[in-house]
Design a binder for these strands. Structure first.
Lengths: 218, 218
DNA sequence: TTCAGTTTCTACTTTTGAGTAACCTATGGT
DNA sequence: ACCATAGGTTACTCAAAAGTAGAAACTGAA
């Protein structure tokens, strides 16, 4: 599988480009970690640079400025959350013969969403307020958030249509679901005692079944 | 009821002290608004002062520094959230002859909690991360948050005991409930289109009944 | 060898906003 | 008349962190 038996320490054009992309991603990952850990303002680029074993100006070689880093983090986080929704459609259809109903698809999405919302990028997207960004970037972020919200809402609506979900208002329900899941990232950081997957499951169980006891399993 | 027929423009000792307390509260309210609107770091004290028609040093006459203001905001918010729980016990017992069950008391609490979490102070308490504070203050905040969490957990446990609530884990459930409610403050700020009370009700309805349809009302 | 381009560094400048010093001006008590 | 205190102002300092200028070091190519 190796292209060359011995790995040359000198890179050609393509390799250099790839390495640059790799480094850019490393910068982003470090920034995301910092942002989600300390918040945007308390995260200093000097320190981000330090954990990467470089100096601050190097970061500016890969990103225009700090805000650009934050935007990239949030955008990437939102893309992950969005991607968690993409296979909500596929997964249900592919796994079983008959198409999954609205509830099943929604729960599948929520589970994947929960997983992402515990990553650094996910937490950047979920926790950091838009208004840290320029109006320009904030608008873009809101657009993406809108499509995610739309996706949840559509799943809720589908569930209502096929009778698998009871909700009087898909719009508010979608807000509530996203809000509840986004909060996972918060407390997870605060009290690290609970295992993440456990929390997510309990959350989703609560959202699906509610606090009130059920007479019989539907 | 008036002590004097004509109000003297000159204040005595007691009136002065009260006025000072009033001004301190005004500073706090302005700060809370700023903090919850823009976040701690983006809120500038110069601007807080501006909306109060004073200058920045005046603020320092009432508070030691910016962090002290934030701490006071958060503490006050937490006190409100806590107070919302105090009358959870009273209210149930006082309103009807027979004592309210766990679920009823919990829902009562959650409703009041939701209302508070939409105020400036509530949002400061719910949204702003502890690590903006000194370790000293953060510890105190965590202690108060702990008692609130405990209160919710106890209500959940009580509900489980009397059969009005179904939950496998009061601890995680309490986290989830607080997290979900705290998120109200976020989105309310983002999309101001929905009326607050409506959102809170929908949220709580979701948490109580869940997404899954119920066969028959219990 | 020299050139052009890439990547990173050292050593700054700039900006922003928290915090302070020092000084006014009422007011009320003595 | 005088003083102490409360409450406020103007005009600063100071620190931290963002951002920049410009040189150095390396690479691959001509």
């Amino acid at each position: 599988m190796n292209k060359t038996a011995i790995a040359s320490p000198w890179k050609n054009e393509a390799e250099r480009k790839q390495e640059r992309a790799l480094k850019r991603e490393a910068v982003l990952a470090a920034a995301a970690h910092m942002f989600s850990e300390r918040g945007y303002h308390r995260a200093s680029l000097d320190e981000v640079a330090r954990v990467l074993n470089v100096t601050k100006p190097t970061l500016y070689y890969y990103f225009k400025n700090k805000e650009a880093m934050l935007y990239a983090c949030i955008e990437h986080g939102l893309e992950l959350l969005n991607a968690a929704g993409e296979d909500a459609n596929e997964d249900g259809g592919r796994h079983t013969e008959d198409a999954a109903n609205g509830m099943e698809r929604l729960v599948g999405y929520l589970k994947r969403y929960a997983v992402v919302s515990e990553t650094d990028f996910g937490r950047c997207a979920a926790r950091i307020s838009d208004n840290e960004l320029s109006e320009e970037s904030a608008r873009k972020v809101r657009r993406i958030k809108g499509t995610i919200d739309r996706k949840i809402r559509d799943l809720v609506s589908a569930g209502i249509a096929d009778g698998s979900i009871a909700s009087s208002d898909p719009k508010v329900t979608a807000f509530a679901l996203a809000g509840a899941l986004n909060s996972i990232g918060h407390w997870h950081a605060g009290s690290a005692s609970l295992p993440g997957a456990r929390i997510a499951n309990e959350y989703i169980n609560l959202l699906v079944n509610g606090l009130a006891p059920r007479k019989a399993a539907p």
